[in-house]
Design a protein around this nucleic acid. Sequence first.
RNA 1: GCGAGAGUGGCGGAACGGCAGACGCGGCGGACUUAAAAUCCGCUCCCGGUUACGGGGUGGGGGUUCGACUCCCCCCUCUCGCACCA
Length: 903
Amino acid sequence: MYGLGLETRGFNRRTPIVMEEKQRNQYVPQAIEAKWQKIWEEKEIFKAPNPGEDSFDPNKPKFYILDMFPYPSGAGLHVGHPEGYTATDILARFKRMQGYNVLHPMGWDSFGLPAEQYAIQTGTHPAVTTSKNIQGFKKQLKSLGFSYDWSREIATTDPRYYHWTQWIFTRLFDMGLAYQAEVPVWWCPALGTVLANEEVIDGRSERGDHPCERKPLKQWMLKITAYADRLLEDLEELDWPESVKAMQRSWIGRSEGAEVRFRLADRPEEELAVFTTRPDTLFGATYMVLAPEHPLVNEITTPEQREEVAAYQREAATKTDLARTELNKDKTGVFTGAYALNPVFPEDDPRARIPIWIADYVLMGYGTGAIMAVPGGDERDFDFALQYGLKILQVVDGGERPKDPKEAEKKGFVRRVERDGEILECFVGKGVAVHSSNAEISLDGLPTDEAKAKMTQWLESKGLGQAKVTYRLRDWLFSRQRYWGEPFPILHLQDGTIKRVRDEDLPVTLPEMDDFKPSGTFAPPLSKAKDWLETVDPETGKPALRETNTMPQWAGSCWYYLRFMDPHNDKEAWSKEAEQYWGPVDLYVGGAEHAVLHLLYARFWHKVLYDLGLVHTKEPFQKLFNQGMVLSHAYKDSRGALVPVDMAEERGNKFYHKETGEELERIVAKMSKSLKNVENPDDVIRNWGADTMRLYEMFMGPLEASCPWNPDDLPGVHRFLGRVWRLFVPEGKENPPPLRPHLANPGTPDPELEKALHRCIAKVGQDLEGMRFNTAISAMMVFVNEATKRVDQLERTQAERFLLLLAPFAPHLAEELWERLGHTESLAYEPWPSYDPALLVDEEVEIAVQVLGKVRARIKIPKDAEKEFVLSKAKEAVKSQLEGKTLRKEIYVPGRLVNLVAT
RNA sequence: GCGAGAGUGGCGGAACGGCAGACGCGGCGGACUUAAAAUCCGCUCCCGGUUACGGGGUGGGGGUUCGACUCCCCCCUCUCGCACCA
């Protein structure tokens, strides 16, 4: 069994010297890791039985721990992947030892653009690429010793999987939550596809960074807005990072206010609706603004203004959203020539007649695409009014705002500007309504919230408006013009109607195709698969065309956690029984980049499934944890330019440019090919072993923090594992000699070591519950350092218990030593060791003696010494410090310190 | 601009309001060795002092407290998200 993985290549200083290991019985991870991975696989150690199966034990509690499954890219794993995966693996192993039925599966989010792009370039079918990449990923994951139940492996590209993705879509369709609409979407000419808003950043595609443009196209939409309130409310009960909840809340962007309908002057038949969160400021509305694209613009614009308005509209249309928002300081707009009537004033009151402008600071996509402008209460309106000399009225005063106007301005509550000798103010906060009354209603003196309610009520009673809630969240653009995605189970009949494919005709599989090139038109690739495209409606026998759009990559990841519960079910997506037992996911670990979209979409689908009675919980993921990013180092020269890692060399504690000799600053940067600082997990495993890799990933720092990968730190954790090895295995040439003889049988535990072990058990257990892997490892190092100093005193049962603690972290090493101790079964299901709290405290403790909060001495006292005794000992110890002072106060914190307050 | 989070040795990072710097890297010294590697042991926040010890110290400034890395207020820097959302 020795001799595996021994490289004859040259060693660099990162490579542990493994020469002569045979003679010395050294720790050689390469010699044991493959062996244990094979045993776990062959004996199906980590297979989790489902309810109803023979080996299922219903008395055990369940724990469903899930990783965000990866897109199997051609590049393979990078060192960032195993960080989260190692953490979940440790917890899965820990929970198994604690007696849980653990569901810990892995699969592939395998639809997606790169495989299709590759197909376009090389002609290799995406299915081939995908399958190859999956094999590569799987091999890499296995080489890390993860305890996944591989019998549950799924891939979103498998027709046996997307059968049910389509099935869920048909439920959405039946519920009226899936619909088609002509919407302006991002069209990316380079990719030949439409992209979702979230896939376009600053007018360029997220993948490939190609320019994109807006085009109106018929698209499938999912009515996620119907679930906006529930998606918002149910965040409350989730054990998720606050930052993720905050991001989802702002993404949903619920805002409460009122819709107000303004009549147009001289056009009694037309109305203009606006949304406002401040109906209480209606008396201050001195003009209105429409988005340039607003349908009413052309109708109301007067002949004299027509040319100017049209020019402005043209200009706005060519601007991207970015360009429109970038200039957010300089407001631009054009008067339409038309006027509206502010409903709070009588028609013949000159104050009622307010001008209607168009401006691109008003967005068509939000609210009604029109606003009532209250320059005295809104900064944007204030800017605009100043720009174009529009009237500014004060309608809110007091409240949070300081009385003195100068003071108020200084503290940022108001902005004050002088115009034509008049002081104009803008106050956006809450306060008390002023100058807000007419013959029927007066808000004057009312605090903002009451004024809002009163005004809304008045508007309703007059038929002028009503309370309204608006969301920033849009319906979800759900179709893509790609080949490598789930086909929609939809038929287009000749009469123009559409119907969904019957359940018994699912799945609609992707047709084989040779030509993946974009057509150059908006027609998706599937429209070229003629035989597939043209079909018959099985119910009527009439010809029908298949839908040629495909679903976005998000679709498959919306419900994969459910399929894992019952992955081979060919009768239904999952059985009720399996979902009742395993759901919800207890812990979901992944990167923060999925904070909004994936998690929001999955929550949406889950709620729909809940409404259909198909799942029993309102939310899919009870606890969410975001692991940090694994960063790397790079260098920066004096001009601030980044320098790749291979161009820098270290001398002393400083870094210099290899060619210019210039001193460089070492910085932390994201891994990138250009900086040559990408670390490859395969190299680490080959050189150091999987257990070292796992341990290092966890020892870098807290899981949630991002920190730099530093290869120089690898020897540290590797040395630790070597020390563990030597606690069990004597140096020597014997073969087999694999165990220190005194460990063969139980002996008398050394009491000090026993205490140290109990402290270790307690700390590791608590840290695992709190996901503090780095400090758990540190606790084990402390114990091993202790044990190394008295190797011969380490007794068999102590050694065993320690191995069990180590097992979740370094499972190969632990299994190997467990076997050498004479065990024939895997330790994967051994009970987690327990500790005696009484042993955590030493008989004699050292405490600090402070005088005025400064430590002046340390004394040793029995652990349960009387207060009086401790105080007198303490005073004795700091006698010189107390001389000539009066003792004012004595504080004793048992087991910690004494603080003597003397002046 | 708004929201969230973070600033601790040469480096990664530890510290229920109670001895700042656990553990690891690096560095220094020692043991073993013909020698080196590996391994083992010790030291390693900064300043002064041979030691004893003294002084300073957790981005900056205030505050609460017997006692603050930790709690409160103000400011600075960095990271992430949102960004004319009416």
